[in-house]
Design a binder for these strands. Structure first.
Lengths: 162, 162
DNA sequence: GTCAGTGCAAACTTTTTGCAACTAC
DNA sequence: GTAGTTGCAAAAAGTTTGCACTGAC
């Protein structure tokens, strides 16, 4: 499915959601949805705000972004993550299930896929709980930071020896 | 292992960590560690602060709580979660691995254990990444909210019919 | 004695809220 | 026309920071 097709589909899903819940179909809401579905990977409100300001896109306020993103989460078109200090969001329609590796040192977030892990999670029997979605965050050190630390350690040892 | 034994052990681990990293062994730090290891489940900074104020425990400032909790995370004695708006923490030494169910409606967080899920995650081959710990958050509706929604829906239908 | 650590208050950041103006229905 | 939405600015909430003082080493 190409980007335009996805955009059309999510627009339709959103319209249905808005109708079903008695919300208005404002141009702001569609502009926000469109912008979000143009972004690959994670974004925070500030990034989204800048993106919409910069481009000749619709101009919206931060308050509207916060309001709309709640609707989009309810419509299951966006999911929210909370790495670091800011809330991060990502589109969720037509995206492959993926997990997140987060470097505890530099904060870098990498996505990865793993089908057996995915099916293990999805087949878990939950006790009186209606699953909607899930997030797996794996914390540790990315290869870059591991290397940096080794180098640092080496330098410290050398200093002591002097 | 009983609580006092755990407290003694983590105190020792923390002491080693502080020594190894050239940090001072202040009474505030030990009082914070002790309080945290008296708490079952999650807590946020504010709760921890109140706990330490109320009890005849050591009185510390919020700034010190934030500072110390970073040290405790580095010493692998505390882990951080970010459900909702506030950062949540929990002790991590001598705690069984568990996962989190989060109700998207009422925000209630429940822990559950599942060994096959745990081993599936732990046996995952990671690409150039040194695993330290992980968090699995499962979002959905708790039984209470499912029931509440059904009731609400029923009421709405009745209203429309009138 | 020195400097890391602490408490306090101010600053900063992110998110929420109140309200007047606007507009989808 | 009217009530849901928007934008703006103010407020709130959580966390970080600057600085003088304290106390661990």
């Amino acid at each position: 499915m190409d980007t335009q097709q996805v955009k059309d589909t999510v627009k339709q899903i959103f319209t249905e959601y808005l109708n079903a819940n008695g919300h208005r179909k404002t141009p702001e809401r569609y502009a926000i949805l469109d912008t979000i579905y143009s972004i690959d990977g994670h974004f925070d409100i500030d990034t989204l705000y800048s993106l919409m300001m910069d481009q000749e896109k619709f101009r919206v306020s931060r308050a509207t972004l916060y309001n709309t993103i709640i609707l989009l989460m309810n419509a299951r078109l966006v999911i929210k993550h909370q790495f670091g200090n800011t809330s991060q969001y990502e589109k969720s329609y037509n995206r492959d299930t993926h997990h997140h590796q987060i470097c505890t040192q530099c904060g870098k977030v990498t996505e990865f896929q793993n089908e057996s892990l995915q099916s293990a999670i999805e087949s878990t029997k939950l006790n009186r709980f209606q699953l909607s979605h899930y997030s797996l965050y794996i914390y540790g050190l990315c290869s870059r930071c591991v290397r940096a630390n080794k180098k640092k350690k080496l330098n410290n040892t050398n200093k002591k020896e002097k």
